[in-house]
Write a protein that binds this DNA or RNA. Structure first.
Lengths: 151, 151
DNA sequence: TCTTGATCCTCCAGTCACTGGAGGATCTAG
DNA sequence: CTAGATCCTCCAGTGACTGGAGGATCAAGA
């Protein structure tokens, strides 16, 4: 028997950009955009100039999408991808990148929590009456109402 | 005695755009931008075409800045300003706006916390060794490592 | 009075990370 | 064979600013 092909796995036929979009949840123009800024390599084309992708593309695009969802900026992703493309390197850089990012996330959470408390106080103070006595307007008009000064 | 002027209060001389910027912490181009999109009214000009402002401008710009810092979008601020300009109206709208915004903030916090946990796990799992065994890269490459699926 | 430097003006282009439309070519199914 | 789906490129728009070019005007000191 030649090969044990045609197991229930997906056949390795090249993917269209639409199929890649479906598999990754990334919109087609966004995929083209990622190629244009060099996050994705230039996709090989068919005779009729259509981009083709494979499993590697799916993985790479998922990597990108996932990093974006985690809030990494494109430049950071570019660095992470370069590192991922070059295993065997010490990963101190990736680690530092992630740590920096973690600190950034924690600070964002803190600021959002302060903000939430403030808006909550605003909403709870509203007498549902008239703008004249509305805390929402008042608090926004006068920063001194705030509990925090560092948002 | 004519008037009890020159108390230690600020004199009501018109402000330049630079002074307004200093008093509010909003950059000069941003002030002009707010005017251009109609958040601030067109400022009266001097003979030599320079914008002039007064205490009302300071209050209005502080309102805008504060609302922006709280995460309100310009369109929401436009509505809030319209309400603030028209006291005596029922404030249900402002209240609804703020409540909607509060829900939005809470959801952002939740997503950021999930994200933080994930990045934290990434960082803590890093063996400081090589990319080959680096959790940062691994987690980013494969979404199934995540505790959460809704970030 | 002159001059220097600060401040102001308008207009336009760039930022980031996409998103969408126009206009046209090509593929696929019935 | 045809209709509709999908693809291509190019370009412009989003939101909320930010910054620079090139030029006018102001305030203060020598």
């Amino acid at each position: 028997m030649p090969t044990m092909s045609s197991l229930p796995a997906t056949p390795p036929s090249p993917l269209t950009i639409g199929a890649l979009a479906k598999q990754t949840g990334v919109k087609i123009p966004t995929i083209r955009y990622y190629e244009s800024i060099g996050l994705l390599p230039e996709a090989p084309r068919t005779d009729s100039n259509r981009r083709t992708y494979d499993g590697g593309s799916v993985r790479r695009l998922r990597f990108i999408r996932h990093a974006r969802e985690l809030g990494f900026e494109v430049e950071a992703i570019r660095q992470l991808l370069a590192m991922a493309d070059d295993p065997g390197q010490p990963c101190r850089d990736a680690d530092l990148l992630a740590r920096t990012h973690l600190a950034e996330i924690e600070s964002r959470i803190a600021r959002l929590e302060a903000l939430r408390d403030e808006v909550r106080r605003m909403v709870e103070g509203c007498a549902q009456d008239q703008v004249r006595s509305c805390h929402v307007i008042e608090v926004l008009a006068d920063h001194t109402h705030c509990l925090h000064d560092r948002h």
